[in-house]
């Protein structure tokens, strides 16, 4: 597949990793604004800080003069962080004006991003927003009274969790779907990562498709695939079928297990222990007894022989001729 990044993206990334002069790598000590987004579990995370030239009387006239980032993520996540800082510094914006920078500006600055990497630019814009909110609190600016509709980051904790993999709630998803004009499930995944991992939330009731329909009206739903995936079960229950019960009365698996245990304890184990060995029953199904020889017996060349000639013979004679012993 190769690298589908623009030259600008590649350059910003390489400049950053090589610490070229003029890059924005780092963290500002006691910053005027600090915003974080993402987590290490999700595969990318950014810590974004900025410093302002404080206006003597009006905080709204503060100007961002320095921006820095630390980013855990792929090539495009690091390039997006670099782009965000460059855009802000070049424009000499007030924090409130900086809010107008969208993820699209970051994408444009980079000369485009592969669509499955759009979420990297969204992460940058989210971190910026969080940092501006932080700045507003520190400077006593009430963003809401300025008519700025900021989805507070408390949204992440509010609302109903829809995408478990990336911890995204319905409140957050609805706002972002509108803001970023996301029309399809793929667009949601590319921009917000939601539904990108286990995919379980895509089509379940109250899931991404339902949210998409709610936001845009169901006529807009152009993605009506059937549920793709079932979750794997790591712990299948072992239903040993009891419905093929034969005519004559059989020992139940429990009874059989008990008998085997008794015979081993009374007759077999003492014989093995005489030679410094022991035996463990790993499992019993039907009349198959899975055994493991232990101690001195485990490495013995004749272990297989012992199991067949001694253990199996005794169990057959004492309990049932159908018994078969398998060495684990």
């Amino acid at each position: 597949m190769g690298w589908q990044y623009s030259d600008k993206t590649k350059k910003l990334f390489m400049d950053a990793v090589q610490g070229a002069p003029g890059t924005h790598l780092g963290e500002i000590p006691s910053p005027d604004g600090l915003g974080e987004h993402g987590s290490i579990a999700c595969g990318d995370a950014i810590k974004f800080t900025f410093k302002v030239d404080k206006h003597a009387s009006d905080p709204l006239k503060d100007v961002i003069v320095l921006a820095k980032y630390l980013t855990f993520g792929c090539t495009s996540a690091i390039a997006s962080s670099e782009a965000l800082c460059s855009i802000i510094e070049q424009k000499r914006l007030s924090p409130v004006d900086a809010l107008k920078i969208t993820n699209q500006d970051i994408v444009d600055f980079l000369g485009g991003l592969p669509e499955q990497k759009i979420h990297c630019s969204v992460m940058g814009a989210e971190a910026l927003e969080a940092a501006v909110i932080d700045w507003a609190q520190k400077r006593g600016v009430d963003l809401r009274s300025l008519g700025i509709n900021i989805g507070t980051h408390e949204e992440i904790d509010e609302g109903r969790l829809v995408c478990q993999c990336f911890s995204l709630t319905d409140v957050y998803l609805k706002r972002k779907i509108k803001e970023l004009n996301l029309q399809t499930l793929d667009a949601i995944t590319h921009s917000l990562k939601a539904g990108g991992a286990c995919q379980a939330c895509k089509y379940k009731p109250g899931g991404l498709q339902d949210i998409l329909n709610e936001v845009w009206g169901s006529t807009n739903a152009n993605n009506n695939k059937t549920t793709k995936e079932e979750s794997m079960s790591h712990h299948p229950d072992h239903k040993h079928s009891t419905d093929n019960s034969e005519e004559k009365v059989e020992a139940s698996p429990y009874q059989l297990g008990k008998k085997v245990e008794n015979v081993i304890a009374e007759k077999i184990r003492p014989l093995l222990q005489r030679d410094g060995g022991d035996i463990e029953v790993v499992d019993i199904k039907d009349y198959i007894i899975y055994c493991q020889l232990q101690g001195a017996c485990s490495g013995c060349m004749g272990a297989q022989m012992t199991l067949k000639m001694m253990v199996e013979r005794i169990l057959k004679e004492d309990i049932d001729q159908r018994i078969k012993v398998i060495s684990v």
Binding site: V17, Q18, E27, A45, K47, L70
Partner: peptide, 8 residues
């Protein structure tokens, strides 16, 4: 190089 950039 990458660890220098990492917030962790």
């Amino acid at each position: 190089n990458l660890r220098k950039i990492s917030p962790y």
